[in-house]
């Protein structure tokens, strides 16, 4: 295992042994879920999932049962209806604010941005009771509808969005904006024609993070949409986790189904995510 790699670096036996082990260790739990989701209830209850890898006895019944007997199908649609607007809506507001923070000078700028940095740390639990009052029957009465969670996720995602976009915009060459200004472009035009398109990597990075966060969220979905007809997959899954006996075999299939879309989003936007995270989203 000695020698050199194509790029001339020396091979590291330690890394070549340790990394595959780590990868296996990190992947086994998910593989267990995937395998179990293709097993019948009797088999899953009487033997470990690893025994069926070579033993066979696979079935698609769990997935069929999921769509025929549970609300998982409509919950999947609900999750998309919740997650897509909740991902896109904060971006517009945040981009304008980030532009102001990056390219304009005004009194109070420091203080206002420090507010952004500070509220990123504030636990969202503080918002629950006041927001339940405001959106619930005592207030607007929109609790349980998609609009309520769009609003909440847009607000809760705002600090991170402004922070990420502003940190990215600060790396753009200032001369671009200055020359646009000299050419007589207004801030509004500069934003639309220059800064917003140039910021697209950071926008994609935030969008990926926000989508994963909204899709995977349990608390807000549970409190502000609830377990009714509009429930999301994660709430549905949480309800299934409590069931014993009949239907328990659907849980693993449901869990896997709930992961498919975020995994696709994750893998297709991974580069943006990594670039966004390393170039500002989490810079301490």
């Amino acid at each position: 295992m000695s020698g050199t790699m194509k790029d001339g670096r020396r091979r590291s036996p330690l890394a070549m042994i340790a990394m595959p082990l780590m990868v296996i260790l990190w992947t086994i739990p998910t593989v267990g879920l995937l395998v179990t989701s293709f097993r019948t209830r009797e088999e899953a209850a009487t033997s470990g999932w690893w025994s069926s890898i070579f033993g066979g006895g696979w079935t698609l019944d769990n997935y069929r049962g999921l769509f025929e007997n549970t609300s998982m199908g409509s919950s999947l649609v609900n999750s998309i209806v919740v997650a897509v607007p909740a991902t896109v809506l904060p971006i517009m507001f945040a981009a304008f604010a980030a532009y102001a923070f990056t390219f304009m000078r005004f009194p109070g700028k420091d203080v206002l941005f420090i507010v952004i940095v500070a509220v990123m740390v504030v636990p969202i639990q503080v918002a629950f009771q006041p927001m339940l009052d405001l959106l619930g029957p005592r207030g607007l009465g929109i609790n349980g509808q998609f609009v309520a969670v769009w609003l909440l996720h847009t607000g809760f995602g705002m600090p991170l969005a402004v922070y990420t976009l502003r940190n990215y915009m600060a790396t753009l060459p200032n001369s671009v904006v200055e020359s646009a200004k000299i050419d007589g472009a207004s801030h509004f035009q500069t934003f639309w024609k220059l800064v917003a398109p140039m910021s697209s990597p950071a926008i994609a990075a935030f969008a990926t993070l926000q989508f994963l966060w909204v899709w995977n969220d349990l608390l807000i979905a549970k409190l502000f949409i609830g377990g009714g007809a509009n429930k999301t997959v994660i709430v549905d899954l949480q309800q299934m986790l409590g069931t014993q006996g009949q239907g328990a075999e659907l849980l693993t299939a449901g869990a896997f189904l709930s992961m498919v879309i975020p995994m696709i989003v994750f893998f297709s936007l991974q580069q943006f995510l990594v670039r966004g995270m390393t170039s500002g989203a989490v810079k301490g």
Partner: peptide
Amino acid sequence: FIFLPMSISFVGAATIWGL
């Protein structure tokens, strides 16, 4: 492979580790 779990929800992870 090691990055992948980041896309999994806490509820999904609890199901996985339940096994």
